[in-house]
Simulated scan of single mutants.
Amino acid sequence: MKHPHTPTRLPLLAALALAAALGACSRQQPDDELSAGQRVDNATTAAKREGRELMADARMSAREAADATARVSSDLNITAKVNAALAVDDKLKATQINVDTRDGQVTLSGQAPDAQSRERATTLASAVDGVKQVNNQLVVTRNG
């Protein structure tokens, strides 16, 4: 007696047998069953993988360091420009104003001769390219 579905079963059985054979080939042997060459190959592959991971980490660290350096450089540039702007103002040039910049945020501290000069310091600092915000902590030394 002939089975009507035999032609469709044969390719299915062949595919299952092939899958089982490939699965058996991909199983790793325990280290004690590996040849010296296989152990060297496995160690080399692991070392290459670890080396690639270390290089990726190093590239990321280098990018982060470059970004941090650029931010600090930009902040130093902003501080210098704000100091220069304050130094040319007639009332502010004679005062001791500390300028600190972090991530584009400028903090002014020290003394201002009067309220107008205090506000002028904020205006001058705000006009510098790259300044995101000014925190004016200047204290007026006398009423003007």
Rank of each mutant, 00 (worst) to 15 (best):
E119S: 15
A36C: 01
A36N: 06
A17M: 09
L76C: 03
V106W: 00
K93E: 00
R118P: 03
P30D: 03
A58T: 08
E119L: 12
N98Q: 13
G51R: 10
A24N: 10
L124R: 08
T6A: 14
S26L: 11
A58Y: 00
S35A: 10
G37R: 13
M60A: 13
E53Y: 04
A20H: 04
L13W: 12
L16P: 04
G37W: 02
R9N: 11
D67I: 11
A56R: 05
Q105A: 12
D67E: 14
Q116T: 10
A125I: 06
R27S: 03
V72H: 06
L10S: 08
R102I: 11
R71D: 10
D103V: 06
D89Q: 06
A14R: 14
P7E: 09
A21Y: 02
L138F: 09
K93A: 02
N143H: 11
A17H: 01
R120E: 10
R49V: 07
P30L: 07
L22D: 01
N136M: 05
T8V: 12
L22K: 05
V40Y: 08
G23Q: 05
R49N: 10
L34G: 05
D103A: 14
D129E: 15
R27V: 05
L13R: 13
Q105D: 10
E64S: 13
A36Y: 06
A68E: 10
V72P: 03
G104E: 05
